[in-house]
Computed example of a mutant assay.
Amino acid sequence: MRKSVSNRSIAFVAASVMLALGLFAISPVRAADSVGSVTQISGNAQIERGGATLAAQQGTPVLVQDKVTTQPGAAMTLGFVDGSSIGLSGSTSIAIRDRGTVNGQTIASQVTLISGDIHTVVPDKPGQPPVEVNTENSKATEASPNQ
């Protein structure tokens, strides 16, 4: 009887450890994985990430391969570490397609406009690569006014 209880205890502890390791594998987004974050939001918006849909809130990190969508009447601003930002109006969807590194900081380097309207603010910084905004049917590259 005592050996059976001992075996069950060991099995319970082993299962708990395996479950904990599995939960840590699905840990929250690390800051190092982020290319930006939601800096302002009014109304409802979602972020599709890895098959899951998250409610966007101020401070929510944005990753490469995320699809960000605002609902009708909503507005959202995504801010990036280089000081650039993208404002999304209602009924807008974008996808963060690629990232780059500027002065050791990871930033979104390619964004696809799927539908709707955006407003971008990109500070003019020497040595910074041009910003790309892609739509489903065409591609527009914005170069610095000094180039």
Results as ranks from 00 to 15, higher is better:
A15R: 08
I107D: 05
S4L: 15
G36L: 02
I86R: 04
R49V: 02
A25V: 08
L19F: 15
A108Q: 04
G59S: 00
F24S: 14
S37N: 07
P61G: 00
I118G: 01
Q110W: 04
L21S: 10
P28T: 05
F80S: 03
G87W: 02
P126V: 09
G116T: 03
L113F: 04
N7M: 13
S27T: 10
V17H: 07
M1D: 13
A32C: 13
T106G: 03
S6W: 15
L23Y: 12
R8W: 11
V131Q: 13
Q105K: 10
G116C: 04
N44I: 11
V68I: 11
G43S: 05
D82T: 03
S37G: 07
A55Q: 10
K125A: 13
G51C: 05
V122K: 06
N7G: 08
H119P: 00
R30P: 07
G51N: 03
S34H: 00
K3G: 12
L78S: 05
T70N: 01
I118E: 06
A143R: 12
N134W: 08
S34M: 00
P123E: 05
I107K: 05
E136H: 12
S144H: 07
I94N: 00
S93H: 01
D66Q: 01
V35L: 03
A32N: 13
V81W: 00
S93A: 15
G87D: 10
A14F: 11
T70H: 01
A25L: 12
S138L: 08
G83C: 03
T92M: 01
G51T: 09
F24R: 14
Q110Y: 08
